[in-house]
Design a protein around this nucleic acid. Structure first.
Ligand code: MN
Ligand code: MN
Ligand code: ZN
Ligand code: ZN
Lengths: 148, 148
DNA sequence: ATGTTAATTGCAAATCATTTGCAATGCATA
DNA sequence: TATGCATTGCAAATGATTTGCAATTAACAT
């Protein structure tokens, strides 16, 4: 890959990792590179499949995603099929957003709007709950799949 | 259990099952009885635990829930912990609703409001998707758990 | 009431995603 | 370069769910 891209990523990684006595390793760099190239959430197995053979063990990907999630570098999503998906969190973004998923071909649309924040507040007040968040995903049939 | 309750449930079951050459069996009746007694979603294991020993195999519960879901007698929910939960669908209801779950003690509050229907329409128009639905769950810390 | 037949069940083994133990390896810092 | 702790690969363990199959049973026609 291009050196400057590598450097850029590395320094960004360094920043966030060094503070927590975490190491910048080849597997972690490789995983972040994969996530960079995709705009939609990926499963661990998908990341593993994209990675050059022998580059990184699947168990390492699982461990890495947990770590990256805990340090807010990736956001975890659940499409209801029993498999976790992860997306890189962009600069100055909290990662919170939603998707519209085709139930036939699994195409994914990124959804910018986030409604329930308003409802969230109301819920928190009414229920006495604090730190209220939500998970929301939309499902439907995409234009291509509507034919049959 | 009381005879008339049994009859009531049995006839309701009969109605829905007979049409599809499905059988009214003891395990299915027992499972529905358990769901009747609970207002919040239950996992298959929870249903299994409540059932009298030897009443029904866990695999049978899994199979029954699939069937009951396919005939719209139960609604499946996903709280993001990798375990499916099911709730009985009441008469004249489509089962669609949401929850507010305490991330500390797992207490569940049923949420009546459903926002995203409006957003759903807009999404469908903008994207060309059809049959758009959504899954939405809220998470937070309940009053009891806020102490520490 | 009894027989026929297809649906259903229990049980064990198989799957699938995810986690974990542990010895070997590799980063960060002195 | 040496040291120490984080990290990795690999294999085995877990936990939820599914599945194959022979035995059982509900539904319905004798
Ligand atoms: Mn996304
Ligand atoms: Mn509910
Ligand atoms: Zn949102
Ligand atoms: Zn809703």
């Amino acid at each position: 890959m291009k050196p400057h891209v590598h450097q850029e990523r590395l320094s960004e990684l360094n920043e966030k990792l060094r503070q927590k006595s975490r190491k910048v390793t080849a597997p972690r760099q490789a995983i972040l590179d994969v996530l960079r190239k995709h705009r939609h959430p990926l499963t661990n197995k998908e990341i593993f499949a994209v990675l050059p053979p022998g580059e990184c063990d699947l168990a390492t990907i699982y461990r890495s995603m947990h770590m990256l999630e805990s340090m807010r570098m990736v956001q975890r999503f659940d499409f209801g099929d029993g498999t976790a998906r992860y997306e890189l969190i962009c600069e100055g973004d909290d990662g919170h957003h939603h998707h519209l998923i085709c139930t036939r071909c699994s195409e994914v649309l990124e959804i910018e709007d986030c409604f329930p924040v308003a409802l969230e507040k109301k819920l928190a007040e009414d229920s006495g709950f604090k730190f209220v968040t939500h998970k929301l995903e939309f499902f439907g049939v995409c234009p291509k799949c509507q034919g049959k």
